[in-house]
Amino acid sequence: MAAGTAPARRAGWVRQRTHPSRRVPWLFAVPAVLICFGLFILPALLGAGYAFTNWDGLTSPRWLGFGNFTEFFGDSESIDVLLHTLEISAAYVVGVNLVGLGLALALERTLKTRGLLRALFFLPAVVSPLVVAFIWKFMLDANGAINEALGAVGLGSLEKPWLGEPTLALISIVVVMIWQFAGYHMLIYSAGLQSLQAELREAAAVDGASPWRRFRDITLPLLKPAMTISVALSTITSLMVFDQVIALTGGGPAGSTETLGTYVYKQAFVNGRYGYSAAVALLLVIGVCAVAFVQFRVARRGTAEAGR
């Protein structure tokens, strides 16, 4: 029996000898993993725990179970907040991807100023969203630069309370977001366009396909991987929108531009309802993860089909 187990032991020994060498890279990662766990994962888990309590930030929390979640879904105000977030998200995702793709296509042709234009379009994306939003607020205010300029050129009838009327305020937020991040998405699409095989499009052109046909049947399907990334990133950005709303409208007028991000902030830091705020934040995280997961699955399937 001892003789019979010896080869197995040896085999085990061999495995043990090879495994430590494989584990070395993982051991190098341990400090970073622990720091990430301590500074990100653990606080997030603790925060998620508060979502099931009535914690007010001052006294000991009391367990509520799913009370905060049922309150969220049973309250018309929070449902409005959810709808505003989805409206901003839908408009932003469509807008920023169309503008980004348009810019990428426009700058695909050989231009002397192509590099400069790409840099200029990308520039707003590296500035803090809060700073950008405050600059736009200065322009969009009732007595701001845009209305002043319209009045100065005799277009006073077009002066609007850009941030003081619910629908206009929502549109203004989306426009500011698109203005800032269109250049970023242009870069994603530009990278996608550069990876396309020029021969395919050239062959289609030789065969007499119109520019629109070439774009619709060749460029667009082959851009799906870039589009997937761009749509997923813009969806996540828009669902978590906070800076632009706080700086431009503060969620007003009358809560008409309140989003989940600003709602979470106000519930915690204005109303002192940290437990409820944590519950809404948890819902937001779950929602963002779910949307991102579905988008990647759908896109992967699409990419695989395109590959076939």
Binding site: L27, V30, P31, L34, I35, F37, G38, L39, L42, P43
Partner: peptide, 20 residues
């Protein structure tokens, strides 16, 4: 030595977290 290293890293994390 590896174990001590890991424990030291863990202690550092805890110290950082407590400091926060």
């Amino acid at each position: 030595v590896k174990l001590v290293g890991c424990l030291a890293a863990l202690a550092a994390c805890v110290a950082v977290a407590v400091g926060c």
